[in-house]
Amino acid sequence: MPHNSPFQAAPHEQQAIETPERILVVEDDKAIRTLVTATLESHGMSFLAAATGREAIAAASASNPDVILLDLGLPDMDGVDIIRAVRQWTMTPIIVLSARSEDDDKVAALDAGADDYLTKPFSVDELLARLRAALRRIRYERGNMNRDQSIFENGPLRIDFAAGCVSVDGQEVRLAPMEYKLLCLLAHNAGKVLTHRTILQAVWGSTLPQNLPSLRVFMATLRKKLEAVSPQCSCIHTHVGVGYRMGRLETPPEV
């Protein structure tokens, strides 16, 4: 697979041909950068590399990558600022790499617009899995641009926004109002990690910590209800300490 393919993919254009996915890797540490790019190469993905924040923004605007892998510990700019800058013109999935075991920087990045995260040290498998999930998402979105926005499908799960009903494997599932709201929120952001704060703000309207236990309970029951019908519909992932995510499934579902 040639690097830096001349073919530029505009995000809103319907794709007939499968273009090689291009990943922008932003990492200042040479060893990790080499590890990641080597992995990408060996799996047939083309990539761009940047070592500083400024380079990253320039590369992102110039070559429109499909996914951005962004290290949060860059020397010149704060990761959150980079995310905000990039988000001003594109919705390209951003996966952040964090070296700290604290969750604060990941949560901040997600709130600023990142979609997913990885904690160092990560295994190559994890990295590939997240990349694939992100690529699936954009492929789905590009492929389904003209589709009916009022129906959401993700593997066995089907949500009819207009009718307000949810079904798994064809079977209708009754949800409480809150659960429904949560499910819709997750569905609209399928593939993205939503922080607790984001969810609280969107569904409860405020980020008071008192609502956190309720959030947990609703998520748990929601998941139970969905899984009761189809055990494979384990598409709602809990990221402990960070938030929740509905993963994009293809049959058979991958983790």
Partner: peptide, 9 residues
């Protein structure tokens, strides 16, 4: 209680 038809965020 069934979910509300028109409300989704």
């Amino acid at each position: 209680a069934p979910p509300l038809a028109t409300e989704h965020k």
